[in-house]
Design a binder for these strands. Sequence first.
DNA 1: ACGTGATCCTGGAAGC
DNA 2: TGCTTCCAGGATCACG
Length: 285
Amino acid sequence: MPELPEIETVSRALRPNITGLTVQQVVKRREKLRMPIPNLEFLVGQTVLGTDRRSKYLIINFEHGQLLVHLGMSGFLHWASPTDEVGKHDHWEMRFTDGQILRLRDHRRFGCVLWQPKDTIHDALTHLGPEPLEEAFTTEILKQQIGKKGSPIKTVIMDASVVVGVGNIYANEALFHSKIDPHSKASDLSDAHLEKLVIAIKFVLSEGIRLGGATLRDYHSVDGSDGLFAQFTKVYGRAGQECLVCKSTIQSEMLGQRNTFWCPKCQKKIVKKTSGKGSKQKIKK
DNA sequence: ACGTGATCCTGGAAGC
DNA sequence: TGCTTCCAGGATCACG
């Protein structure tokens, strides 16, 4: 389940190895992932200038544009040599003139490969909200993005048009760290709550990156990755277990079709009271 | 305009 | 043991 920290980790790891390589061949073994893979034969002879990330898209830079690779939830890139066997779910690859092959494997096929010509923005990226780890992502910006949205705050922060890169695991964890009940209506949050939430989102994503993408749970288990995942999550996947802070039982429930975990004691449901003149924020148990 | 929920896909876990 | 059912997830689309 690659989320923002995993993509950032992949981008950083890939950069020194791929930069400067020249494409010899592009091989498409399956036409359709989540979206059709475009024909990219025009990349032959072009040299990789570097890698980047926008939202959960890995960006591979070329002189005439950018290759956007989304790993969906089960996708990953791996290096191969010409003699390596092609896996059942190796759907696409770039071969370079030095003999290395970069393969996209994605058994659930939720990923996609897109091309974005220079100085244009692909349709898939136009509606995206701010990057959570940039300084420009502030309490004020989050407040603007939320506007009058009355949905549960957890659903709202997972909406990529509000802020990108906050997947289910990080949404659960960020709400735990900010002590906000996931059911709270987004528009009911005060500036103080939003400030805590912004700090928590930045914190959990940064921690994810620091741990090299800790949430690679159903990833091919490289030794120790499971341990990192368990060490990272305070509420996600811990329904029925003790809260690590207060020992209350962690609750779980489907919210917005996603499994949601929270501590009923540490996390308070926020309800805005609109009695009489003006409105006051009140924290309700 | 906004909110909700179905859909895509498949390996592995859980249940019978 | 072997079969079936369920679950995970992000993005998109249809509908109310």
